[in-house]
Every structure is written in C-alpha cells, then in structure tokens.
Write a protein that binds this DNA or RNA. Structure first.
Length: 493
RNA sequence: GGUAUCGUGGCCGAGUGGUCAGGCAGAGGUCUGCAAAACCUCGUACAGCGGUUCGACUCCGCUCGAUACCUCCA
C-alpha cells in the first residue's frame, strides 16, 4: 500500500505530509512522566498515542529512534512550597531518598505501561543522568547572551529572544498579552521579567537534590531537560516532538526558545499534541485531584468506578477517540469499550477457525476485503485516525461472522487478506492483544470436558432442567457455556 | 481579560459541501429446547441565528455554551 502519511503539526496548525529529515531514519521525542506519583489515566493517553505512532512509523519502514524521558529532577512546584523540587518534596514527606521515590514510581509507570502493551521506547533517559549536558546547554545560551545570572540562578531572557524570534509561536501566545496577564508569583523577584524562565536554580540549603555548576550548587530548570536530552539522542534537528496539550505552554514554547539559541536553529519539525482526558467534562489532573490511577482502574478499587477495567479495555477506550479530541471518562463509556473489544476478539477467534473456503468462490459479491484494508491504511495515514481503523475492524468482524454462519463466502485470497489485516492493524499497530486467559490448566480442561460431556448426554435425553442446572452452576463460577452449532464451548471470565 | 480548541441521535465517538461512520444501550425479526452468541431490520443527530451555494451538519459571520492554557500538570 503506497500512500502518504499526513500528520497535524501544532506549529503550523495544519495537516502536513510527513517527510523525515533523514529518511529512513526518524527521531521522535515525547515528554514522559514526572515520577513523583502513581500513573493515572491521563498518563496513559500520550503513552498509548505515541506508542501507536511509533508502531505505525516502524511498520511503514522507518527506522525510528523513540525517546521518552523520565523527569526525576528539576520540576519546580510553585504553588505551596516555594521552588521546591517535586521529587525532593515527596521524598521528605515519605522519609525516602529522592532517587528511591523516583525509582519506585518509574517502576510503577513501566509496569502499568507494559500491562497496556505500550512498547518501551529506544531510550528512556533520566534528567538526573544528564546534568552535564544541561549545564553545557545553559552555557551556550549564556554565551549567546540570551540568559543572565542572578544570585547563582540563571534565567532565560524572553524579551531579548522575542526581539529577534517570536516567543509564543507554538501556542499562539503574544508576548505583550503574557506580560500584562501573567500572574505575579512570589519568589520571582530575581527575574528581570515575569515571563523569563529558569535554566538553573540555586539550591536552598534544605534542598536535597543538587549538583555543582559554574553558577551555583543547584539543579536545572524543567524545560531544559527535554531540550538537552532531545539534542543528545536525536541531534540538533529531529522530526517529531510529542506530548500532552497542557505542555504546549510554557514547556514546549520554552524548549523551542532554548534550542533555537543553543543550537542556532529550530530543532523540531513536527510538534504533535494529544488532547486531555476529562472526567465529567473537566480535565483529569493532579492539581484538580480528580484523577483515577491506573491501578485503581485495573482493580476497580475507586468510588468512581463501578467495576474493574482491564488494561486492554483502557487502551481500546483511548484508541476509540482521535488523539486530538478530548475524551470523556465515564463508566458507561468504558463498559461500552469493554464489550466492543470483546466482540473484536471474538471475531478474531472465529477467523482462526475459518480455514477452508469454498473453492468455487473466486470473487465475492459485495465484500471487498481489499477496500477494507485500504480504508485502514487511509485512516492511519490521515493523522493516525485510530477510531476509523476500529470502525473498519468492526466491519471485518461482521464479515467474519457472516462467513462463519455460511451467509457469505470468501475467496482464499480474501481470507488471507482478512487475516493479515487483523494481525497487522489490530495486533501490530493498535497493539491490542488478548489478555491472559486461564484454561491452560490441564486439570481444569479435563474437568470441563467431563462436565460438558455429561451435560451433552442429558441434553440428548431432553433433560433440560439438569442441563440448565449445570450451566447455571458454571455461570456462578464465572464460566460461560454456549451451545453453538459446532458444539458446546465454554470460556472463563 | 487574552489565546486556543470544541459543541454530532439515550451514552461514547468518527467524518464529509449533494449515498454510509462505528461501538454501547434500546425495539422488532431469524436461528436455538431455552439461554447466550451471531445475523437482518429500525432512530428524520449534527448548539442557535443569519449568510454564501442549485444544495450545508460540513464554508463564512454572529450569538450562546463548554473545555484547556495563561502557575505545576500527560
């Protein structure tokens, strides 16, 4: 399938043809989590969104280097604790070493991402492991005259930058508006201007995480780590930078400014932003306290959840919406996703059982598998339209079931095409895989065979009350029995 | 206040200037001992008001409403 990938570039606010700087090599950087809390549903969205981008680019034959950072330092918290590092704050509260906290939560992050079948990126760099690179970058910016030092802290001079370049071009901000609207925050009197942002902060005595630098013992500013690590692993120019929409300003805006000065040119070709997940129409976020962690979803252990939802259900739920749309969480929506996903997997099971086709059928009437497959490619090529892909998969399931019911027939070629389509789009690209199901136990299998054989006997004698008693008893053990034309099948829940 | 995004049937959610999303729920039917599953049929949805057009849910304008960002957040 030869076709062109088009993606929406936040920078131009247009869909653009994807043309990597050095094909077939492709560089992609995505802002990862700050590891000071358990991952919640909001973290799943960018991880899954860019996982699909990663998978699809690879499928198209690109050699992708995918970087997703771990922020374990330098993320300032400005609300209650003045200028205190998030990791350090959490560490003090829990009486743990800062790196212990970072380790714990990054481990948790990886576990939950793996459960949702999110592939590990090529490199997962930590900010704390790249202090020299960050210092070097600050030095370049200082040397270029776009940063100034005050009491051991270094700030980026946004006003000066704006004279020559445009600060705000990504987010559509106008500097004058920012100057008149930005809220006054305490502890920022060092800055020449409120819009300036920190590249290096001098550590207060109580601050545990600190490194030496030409300016002071301290720690790097948040925006810097992504610029420094992106440059280190992907070079001064790379293709895609992704992240949540809420990071557009000031984080990504500041990255653009820093890289522009330090590297002498714009570093990112395509900016991609996923939209937010909302709950009751409001953004689910840490600051609002309305977030539900992934563990709570997987266990159902949260007052807002009427049941547990499996990792694949969460993944499917997210992929059912386009990544640039907001996605509203509700139990109803999640249950719908769960059922829909089950239907897709049931279709795949049925597809596996269709082995022989009617040899007389060379062409099929009304069924165009090639068209279905093409639709999937077109959907992916049009800015990763996963909901459209899913709609076509459902159409595929309808065909599968019709064929199984002998209401439709397929040619051998079409059958192969259909199998490939499901394997590719459902499995490789959307990354949806069947979750572990029991039944591998030989004893259980033997018992079930025995029980169903007995049930078969009584059914043949039209002793339906006994037959139903067995089925009901099994159902109460969460084993569903179905009598199909091909015999009785069972499935554990 | 500024900037941006968005308003689609009971719910979730695509998309397009003139045939159709799709899923879940609901109604009827086929099949089946009954269930279940599956298949078929069914909803006159595009915030409101104007404008452009032969024709708009889709383009333009206005109004109303929602959300995000402007301070940390994926």
């Amino acid at each position: 399938m030869e076709s062109t990938l088009i993606l929406y570039n936040t920078l131009s606010r247009k869909k653009e043809i994807f043309q990597p700087l050095n094909p077939p090599f492709t560089g992609m950087y995505v802002c990862g989590p700050t590891v000071y809390g358990d991952p919640h549903l909001g973290h799943a969205r960018p991880a899954i969104t860019f996982d699909v981008v990663f998978r699809y680019l690879q499928h198209l034959g690109y050699r992708v280097r995918y970087i997703r950072n771990i922020t374990d330092v330098g993320h300032l918290e400005n609300d209650e604790d003045q200028g205190e590092d998030k990791i350090a704050k959490k560490a003090r509260l829990e009486q743990l070493e800062p790196m212990e906290v970072a380790q714990y939560y990054s481990d948790r992050y990886f576990i939950f991402m793996e459960a949702m079948n999110v592939k590990r990126p090529s490199v997962e760099p930590r900010a704390s492991g790249h202090i020299p690179e960050q210092i070097e970058m600050i030095r370049k910016i200082v040397d270029a005259g776009y940063a100034y030092e005050v009491n051991g802290s270094v700030y980026f001079d946004v006003l000066k930058y704006n004279e020559k370049y445009k600060y705000g071009k990504l987010s559509g901000r106008i500097l004058e508006d920012l100057l008149s609207n930005t809220r006054e925050l305490e502890g920022q009197e060092e800055k020449k201007n409120i819009v300036d942002f920190a590249l290096w902060k001098k550590a207060q005595p109580e601050h545990i995480m600190r490194w030496s630098s030409p300016w002071s013992e301290g720690f790097p500013g948040w925006h810097l780590e992504c610029s420094a690590m992106g440059t280190k692993y992907l070079g001064e120019h790379f293709d895609i930078h992704g992240g949540g929409m809420d990071l557009m300003f000031p984080h990504h805006e500041s990255e653009i400014a820093q890289s522009r000065i330090a590297n002498g040119s714009d570093s990112v070709k395509y900016w991609m932003h996923n939209n937010m997940i909302t709950i009751n129409g409001q953004k689910m976020g840490k600051s609002l306290g309305n977030f539900i962690t992934l563990e709570e979803f997987f266990t159902g252990n949260h007052p807002g959840l009427s049941q547990a939802y499996s990792p694949m259900t969460i993944r499917f739920f997210i992929l059912q919406a386009h990544y640039r749309s907001t996605l509203d969480f509700s139990n109803e929506a999640l249950q719908a996703a769960e059922k829909g996903l089950k239907k897709l997997f049931a279709g795949i099971e049925t597809l596996k059982k269709i082995t022989s086709v009617d040899p007389s059928v060379t062409t099929t009437s009304g069924i165009n598998i090639q068209q279905l497959s093409d639709n999937c490619y077109q959907a992916m090529n049009d800015d990763f339209n996963t909901p459209m892909v899913i709609a076509n998969l459902f159409e595929g399931v309808r065909i599968i079931n019709s064929v199984w019911d002998k209401k439709e027939s397929l040619s051998q070629a079409d059958l192969e095409l259909l199998k490939n389509m499901f394997g590719l789009f459902m499995g490789d690209i959307l990354g949806l895989k069947e979750e572990t199901k029991d039944g591998g136990d030989e004893v259980v299998q033997g018992l079930m065979d025995l029980i169903l054989a007995i049930r078969k006997d009584v059914r043949e004698k039209k002793d339906f009350s006994t037959s139903d008693k067995i089925r009901d008893a099994l159902q109460s053990l969460k084993i569903t029995v179905k009598d199909t034309k091909e015999g009785t099948v069972w499935s554990g829940d």
